[in-house]
Design a protein around this nucleic acid. Sequence first.
DNA 1: TGATAGCTTTCCAATATGGAAAGTGGAGAT
DNA 2: ATCTCCACTTTCCATATTGGAAAGCTATCA
Lengths: 101, 101
Amino acid sequence: MIAVPQFDAAIHAPGRLQICALLSASDQVEFATLREAIGVSDSVLSKHLKLLEEAGYVRPRKATSEGRQRTWLSLTTEGRRAFAAHVAELTRLAGLTRAAE
Amino acid sequence: MIAVPQFDAAIHAPGRLQICALLSASDQVEFATLREAIGVSDSVLSKHLKLLEEAGYVRPRKATSEGRQRTWLSLTTEGRRAFAAHVAELTRLAGLTRAAE
DNA sequence: TGATAGCTTTCCAATATGGAAAGTGGAGAT
DNA sequence: ATCTCCACTTTCCATATTGGAAAGCTATCA
């Protein structure tokens, strides 16, 4: 029997996987941009981000720009590593798929 | 802004992703083997399989072997396609990750 | 017919997820 | 200095998901 894949629950949940995917594609993304991109309410995004921050995967940078407060989010080094590991695990599944054909 | 990945909820849930991964690696897998591989109870596996069957992704084959009833599970053609599409979507995330580095 | 194996279904509890709305803190206006 | 507004954050609540235990169902074997 082949090894069963294990996933990082903090990253695997759909909403947070989307967040991580978006963050991994940029150095930093603004809170409102992220919220619109994944289509959730402020509160939901805030909660997902809090969980990712507590996991050490995301770091917020608060700054004022054009007279408004903005929060920029980015993946930490650990966050990038965890996301890459997660994707690698999933990519391994792709390998399994091919092996079966 | 890049496109946000959309996932198939039937496949994305951790337990069912494990099931699909295992099934994708074989032509068919026995119920008990699957249950031990992913470490859940009979009832939980049964419920996951039911959902996957209703989605048209898994097909059970019941047969008697060595005097015992056994159920062999396999992915349908549609199931293989859906799983491959799901993994492809995730693989695209890997591409995003690399593009950001 | 009765017992047993192998799922399936029915409870029920715990956790996760989502939105609305109230709360908080900083920046700029007065 | 303080008032207001904006941008989140937290709380509250409803719903959905996931998991196990235990009862249920069905086919096979004694």
